[in-house]
C-alpha cells in the first residue's frame, strides 16, 4: 500500500511543486544573469536582492484581468495554455533526479517511475506541447499569433527530427530506452556519453534551444517582429501558463541532456576510487549542478546572440543538423556492429 500509492504520490507532489518553484526562480535567474551580463543589477526591490520577485510576479499575473478577444475561438483559446503546460510537467515522471536513497529504512529511488520506454515517452509527450503553441496562435484569430504559430509548427517539427535522431544514437550506445539504464550504462562505460557522442551532444543542445523557443531560435515569440508571437493576445494567468511551460521545457531539456550526456546523477569520474570522498555529496546535487550549468548556458546564449531569421533557421535544421544527425547515427551503428 505504502510502496504502491503513498510514496509515489508524495514523490509526485514534491516533484511537481519543486518544478513549479524551480520554474519561477528560473525566471528570476534569467533576469539576474542577463542583468549581470548587461552591467545592470536586475530585480532588487522585492526581497533581498530581488529574491521574492517570482512571488510578486506570480501574484501580479494571477490578479491581472484575463482577457479573451471577442473573435477568438474561446474553447481552444482556453485550452491552449493547458495543452502547453501539462506535457511540460508530466515529462518529469521519468527523469531520474538521483540514485536510490535510504529513508526511514526504505529504499526510495529518486525518480517517480522508471519505464522501459522512458526516452520514447519523453519525446512523444514533449511533442504534444507544440500543439499548445499552434492552437494558441490559431485560436487568437489575430495575424501576429497566426504567423507565429506557423513559424512554431515548422520550427518545432523540424528540430524534433534532429533531436530524435541524436537520441537514437544515444540509445544505440546505451542499449536501452530507460533513463535509469542510460545513466547506469554511462557508469559502466566509464565515460559520459557527451564524449562518446560529441556530435549528438552538440546537435541535441542546438535542437534543445530551438525546441524550447530560446534565443537565437525564439522566432515564434520574436518580440521585435511579432510583438510577442503566439501569446500576443494572452494575458493574466493564461499568459503565465505559456510562460511557465517555456521555462519548464527548458528545465526538461537540461535534465534530459544531463541524463543522456553528462552522466545524470553520477559524480565526476564515478569509477575512480580515490575520488570516492565526493560520495558524501548526495547524488541529486550532481544532477542539479549539471542541469543548472545547462540552464546557465541557455541564458548566456540569449544574452549574447542575435536572432536567426525564420528561413535561415529552417535551413540550419534541414540542411545541417538533420544530415549530421543521420550521419552520426549511421556511423554509430557501424562502429557498434563492428567493434562489439
Amino acid at each position: 500500500m505504502i510502496d504502491q500509492l503513498v510514496i509515489p504520490l508524495v514523490k509526485i507532489l514534491i516533484v511537481l511543486n519543486a518544478t513549479l518553484v524551480g520554474v519561477t526562480y528560473m525566471v528570476l535567474l534569467e533576469r539576474k544573469v542577463i542583468a549581470w551580463t548587461q552591467s545592470r543589477l536586475g530585480p532588487m526591490r522585492v526581497g533581498p536582492y530581488g529574491a521574492l520577485q517570482p512571488i510578486a510576479d506570480a501574484l501580479k499575473l494571477m490578479i491581472k484581468e484575463d482577457i479573451t478577444p471577442v473573435r477568438a475561438d474561446k474553447w481552444v483559446f482556453t485550452a491552449a495554455p493547458i495543452v502547453a503546460m501539462v506535457p511540460a510537467l508530466i515529462v518529469y515522471a521519468v527523469i531520474p533526479f538521483g540514485d536510490t536513497v535510504n529513508l526511514f529504512g526504505r529504499e526510495i529511488p529518486l525518480y517517480i517511475t522508471d519505464i522501459n520506454v522512458g526516452l520514447l515517452y519523453i519525446v512523444s509527450v514533449a511533442s504534444v506541447g507544440v500543439y499548445g503553441i499552434i492552437l494558441g496562435g490559431y485560436a487568437s484569430n489575430s495575424k501576429y499569433p497566426l504567423l507565429a504559430s506557423l513559424r512554431a509548427s515548422a520550427q518545432l517539427i523540424s528540430y524534433e527530427v534532429a533531436i530524435t535522431l541524436t537520441l537514437v544514437s544515444v540509445i544505440l550506445v546505451a542499449g536501452s530506452l530507460s533513463m535509469v539504464s542510460i545513466v547506469r550504462a554511462q557508469e559502466s562505460a566509464h565515460v559520459w556519453f557527451a564524449f562518446l557522442q560529441p556530435i549528438a551532444f552538440v546537435i541535441f543542445f542546438i535542437g534543445g534551444l530551438a525546441e524550447t523557443n530560446r534565443s537565437p531560435f525564439d522566432m515564434p515569440e520574436a518580440e521585435q517582429e511579432l510583438t510577442g508571437g503566439f501569446h500576443t493576445e494572452y494575458s493574466g494567468m493564461r499568459f503565465a501558463l505559456f510562460f511557465l511551460a517555456e521555462y519548464a521545457n527548458m528545465i526538461v531539456v537540461a535534465s534530459v541532456a544531463t541524463t543522456l550526456f553528462l552522466g545524470g546523477w553520477l559524480r565526476p569520474f564515478p569509477n575512480v576510487a580515490w575520488l570516492s570522498f565526493l560520495d558524501v555529496i548526495p547524488s541529486w546535487t550532481w544532477f542539479l549542478v549539471k542541469s543548472f550549468g545547462f540552464l546557465y548556458i541557455f541564458i548566456w546564449v540569449r544574452a549574447t546572440l542575435p536572432r536567426y531569421r525564420y528561413d535561415q533557421l529552417m535551413r540550419l535544421g534541414w540542411k545541417v543538423l538533420i544530415p549530421l544527425a543521420i550521419a552520426n547515427l549511421v556511423i554509430t551503428g557501424i562502429v557498434k556492429v563492428l567493434l562489439l
Binding site: I34, T37, Q38, S39, R40, S215, P216, D218, A222, Q224, R302, A303, T304, L305, P306, R307
Partner: peptide
C-alpha cells in the same frame, strides 16, 4: 538596431 535583430545586450552597453 541590434535589439531589433535580437542581440539585446548591445543595447545596454550602448546606453551606458
Amino acid at each position: 538596431h541590434a535589439m531589433d535583430i535580437g542581440a539585446m545586450t548591445v543595447f545596454l552597453y550602448a546606453f551606458r
